[in-house]
Simulated scan of single mutants.
Amino acid sequence: MAEAMGTQKDAVLDTGSASKTENVPLQVTSIRLTKDNYLSWSAALEIGITSRGRLSYITGDKPAPIKSDPQWATWALEDSQVKVWIISSVSSDIQPLILRKPTSFDMWTVLAKMYGRKKRHLRTYQIKRSIYSLTQGDLSVAAFYAALKTKWEELDYHVTDEWTCGSDHSLYWEKEWMDRTFLFLGGLRDEFESIRSQILNGDEIPGIEEVYARVESEEQRRQVMHLDTGHGPSAFVSRASGTGQRPARHCTHCHKLGHSVDFCWDLHPEKRLVRGRPPSGKRSPSVSDSSQSNSSSGAKSKLSPAQLQELQAYISRLSTTPEESSTSEGAQLAQALVASTDQGLGDGEEDWDWFGY
């Protein structure tokens, strides 16, 4: 009878142990401890252990009971699980250093002594140097602020100053966060000069969180308005309306740009004096002689106001009369234009665009 009761008691204990370890993960963080990342590792592992309700095992607040205590079996089971989490989160070269420690608290304490305060002054110097040299560069405002915040937290971990006066301690941290606000603003790109000036020219400098919120809001506004570096309002309007520059015309006959085959002078010589003047290689002898005489004399003639008025009136008539209505008057005006301008228009696109085609 006694043996049966003992067997039943063992079965109940085994069932309780199994229920406590059921669905318990082998890892609570993806960060593995190396010789240089103790701060980030300890923070991540502490969060993972706390989420499982077993932080007191590594802080020493729940020491081991005596083995005759009915709670010893439960404590040993839960402490072993914490030890598994610690061992699985350190690199393979560090595991032998803690593998035979009796409790998870001993493992945690040894790792803190070995890597937590190692070369504190050298590490403080390295952190401060990296903070002062850090700029936004190609990072977003959020990524830049996160990089600074990570370094500030690591720096605070290595600073072990003890304060006897609470008011002096508060004043120190107020000044410290003011300096960090200046570092954040100073590391931003030049495109945030406007919001930076607004903050610095205010009567009071807000806290670092409010400063970050204002700068990050400005970045979002710029992204929405497409006002990042290299983009202007005209480019945004062009993209929004779906229109850009006028596509260049291409003639399939002479393979020149600036006109289509319907207005090619080679195929339609009758349109030379209606739409513009002929190409430079096909000018009439009178025009060529007039240009040579003007260049040899060195004088630069210009259109008189009367000629300009006649030319404007002629162009206005072209918009209301058929193309076949070119007359000798049009020819005379076109030749006068060629002979009177300082620099003749070249072939291609400029020939047509001067008259609006």
Rank of each mutant, 00 (worst) to 15 (best):
E3L: 12
S17C: 04
V24F: 05
L26Q: 11
I31M: 06
N37P: 09
S40F: 07
W41V: 12
I47F: 06
G48Q: 09
L55E: 08
G60V: 07
K62D: 12
K62R: 14
P65R: 01
D69M: 03
P70L: 03
Q71G: 08
W72R: 02
T74M: 01
A76G: 02
V84F: 02
V84W: 01
I86Q: 08
I87F: 01
V90A: 07
D93Q: 08
I94P: 06
L97V: 03
I98V: 15
K101E: 13
T103I: 04
D106W: 02
D106E: 15
M107C: 15
Y115A: 04
L122R: 11
T124P: 00
Q126A: 13
Q126W: 03
S130A: 13
I131G: 07
G137P: 06
D138S: 14
L139S: 14
F144R: 03
F144I: 06
Y145C: 05
K149I: 04
K151D: 12
L155V: 02
V159A: 02
T160P: 00
T164G: 14
S167D: 13
H169K: 15
E174C: 05
D179G: 08
R180H: 13
T181V: 07
T181Y: 08
T181W: 08
L188W: 07
E191K: 04
R196C: 15
S197F: 00
Q198C: 10
G202Q: 11
I208E: 15
I208K: 14
E209T: 11
A213G: 13
E216M: 01
E216Y: 05
S217G: 08
E218T: 14
Q220D: 09
R222A: 10
V224R: 14
H231P: 00
S234C: 03
V237N: 06
S238N: 10
G242M: 10
G242Y: 08
G244P: 00
R246M: 07
R246F: 06
P247L: 00
W265I: 02
D266V: 06
H268M: 04
H268Q: 07
E270D: 14
L273H: 09
V274A: 08
V274N: 05
G276E: 01
R277K: 01
P278E: 00
G281A: 14
S286Q: 08
S288I: 12
Q292R: 15
Q292G: 03
S297F: 04
A299E: 10
K300L: 14
S301M: 10
L303V: 03
L303E: 09
Q307C: 02
L308N: 05
E310K: 15
E310Y: 04
Q312D: 11
Y314H: 11
L318F: 01
T321M: 09
E323M: 02
G330V: 00
A331E: 11
A331W: 03
Q332C: 05
L337H: 06
A339K: 10
Q343E: 12
G344R: 11
D347H: 08
D347K: 06
E350Y: 05
D351M: 12
D353R: 13
Y357V: 01
Y357H: 07
Y357C: 00
